[in-house]
Write a protein that binds this DNA or RNA. Sequence first.
DNA 1: TAGATTGTTAATCGATTAACAATC
DNA 2: TAGATTGTTAATCGATTAACAATC
Lengths: 208, 208
Amino acid sequence: MNPTGISNSVIKRLPRYYRFLGELKKEGMTRISSRELSDRMHLTASQIRQDLNCFGEFGQQGYGYNIELLQNEIAKILGLDKPQNAILIGAGNLGKAIAHYINFEAKGFHLIGIFDAKESLVGQMVRNVPIRHISTLDEFCRENMPRAAILCIPKEASKEICNMLIKLGVKGFLNFSHYDISLDHPDAEVENIHFGDSLMTLSYKLSN
Amino acid sequence: MNPTGISNSVIKRLPRYYRFLGELKKEGMTRISSRELSDRMHLTASQIRQDLNCFGEFGQQGYGYNIELLQNEIAKILGLDKPQNAILIGAGNLGKAIAHYINFEAKGFHLIGIFDAKESLVGQMVRNVPIRHISTLDEFCRENMPRAAILCIPKEASKEICNMLIKLGVKGFLNFSHYDISLDHPDAEVENIHFGDSLMTLSYKLSN
DNA sequence: TAGATTGTTAATCGATTAACAATC
DNA sequence: TAGATTGTTAATCGATTAACAATC
């Protein structure tokens, strides 16, 4: 369970609902029942209704759910309507890929700065955001107060930078490094993405 | 539950055990009790013992676990000792980042090919693996029989390529695209990595 | 032998599914 | 009104935690 009282399992499913509803909208559909949505997403209708009812009553008996309306509600629940400032640390291949391909605005964030330790990268623009030198991070944060940081740097660097960012008021992390933020900072909100772990899990599944 | 009878929750924790044991080894430690490991990893000792006992009896009463031995056992369980051939589809920023930074050999795989639709990339080497044109994928697979594919391409392309790869004998996917492989191919092993979903989850946590 | 710590069973907790009355 | 489908409560299932006998 979370501070909000909603279980993590439910929250983790919300983005997928959001995506599916977006596709249905694109297909020109306007309403859908929990039953039909469950068929499409390969879940149970029960689960969908339970999940949604954590946040309110968005459907109508005998009718189902209005797709556009429901998608908007989920957007609000996820906070997509109030983007928060985020910075990206590390402009190597991975950092650049993130900066290039992720539509931050559509995911609830506003990318306001990119930082790297490599002088040669400083000044380059990625999607209208300039890469700055890591030595200017402190000052930048004091001025711009980002709420979230995306860590695309190695483990050792992450520990130090993360410590600093938390002192500067950063509350959440999208963490690509192997540094285990929560161990040192139990109150930080962290989403870990560990490619290596996913590969090993896949290896297990393919080996057994 | 899995074909192997081990629950997914357990399997997902194995890579983290593996990483922690590696660090303990680096620190020069040789043994550890479930209690001390649980303190370091912020889990319960019970859970650690339960998890490990799914696969065998690796500890000793009154002593604990031998770190090196346990790490090796987990490596075997994960299949890291028998690397499987994998190919990477899409050599944009993300694909390149993956090819550059991930130590495939250490994660149970052997990267044998990289493919892209962009002619200008063809022939470039990434870590000794040449980028090939996507039109040669079919032939390459027939000759080299890769077991796994990493999809770093957009949703639409993924659907088509994935279909083809499964026909060519690919069994597992590390999927960065929004194409929902399991819906069309229930028997494929899939690990999804959706940056966007993780960002939205983070947005939720920072908004509530 | 006494102390420590495992492997394993039993108890608890939480998440998912089923059922159904309420209602559009 | 009758049919459909929700919201919600109850039942089931699975995962985590606690307890403890076995044993090094």
